[in-house]
């Protein structure tokens, strides 16, 4: 590099002589920063989603790419099209990539036996089957055909559920439908809290 090239590559020189007078764009770039790419550049696709935290309902763009380990979420950005959020996300919404990709996420069914002091693994179909037996048992133990006056109740007080405010409408629909058919009435969620 000659001296004049060297001077010209000096950011202050570029800032004073170029169009970027405030030094916030091209003037401040280095060869290194020029080579950088947004992490969204490698995305195979972008899908539309909604922030899973509060009820403002900010719109998200989810960038998905893949490597040897399979498909991965590369980044989650605010969606500028949304009339609700105009592309903005708060710290929680901005952290939702970490929420879905972090190593805090459990991948396996875990089981703690009565009086147990540790978790143990269980395969998913077995766990579901064991659970189904227990649901029927608890239902039977809490079953009430009628009230004291002989009026039909057709219910069980043996099974309770809490949760729904973080779930999809379709999921809540099936939860309420299944539990109602089982006769379980103590079905609740955060809206009561």
């Amino acid at each position: 590099m000659g001296v004049s090239d060297w001077i010209r590559s000096w950011p202050v020189y570029r800032q004073l002589t170029g169009a970027d007078r405030l030094g916030r764009g091209d003037a401040a770039a280095s060869p290194q920063s020029r080579e950088r790419e947004p992490r969204t550049a490698d995305a195979d696709r972008v899908t539309a989603s909604v922030c899973p935290y509060c009820a403002v309902g900010c719109s998200q763009n989810v960038y998905v790419g893949s490597d040897d380990g399979g498909e991965r979420v590369l980044q989650i950005e605010g969606n500028p099209d949304s009339p609700i959020s105009r592309g903005r996300l708060c710290p929680k919404g901005s952290a939702s990539k970490q929420l879905v990709t972090g190593d805090h996420r459990e991948e396996r069914v875990l089981y703690r036996a009565p009086y147990g002091t540790e978790w143990q693994e269980l395969d998913l179909p077995t766990a579901l089957d064991m659970l189904a037996d227990r649901v029927l048992d608890a239902r039977r133990k809490g079953w009430q055909d009628t009230d004291a006056d002989g009026k039909p109740l057709r219910r069980t007080q043996g099974i309770a559920s809490l949760g729904g405010a973080t779930l999809d409408n379709e999921e809540n629909y099936l939860i309420k439908k299944l539990f109602t058919a089982l006769g379980a009435v103590q079905i609740e969620n955060q809206a009561r809290i």
Binding site: Y53, A55, L167, N172, I187, N189, Q190, A191
Partner: peptide, 13 residues
Amino acid sequence: HASIQGSTDIPTL
């Protein structure tokens, strides 16, 4: 919560 309105409309209550 993201769908607390939904879980009241389609209630798990």
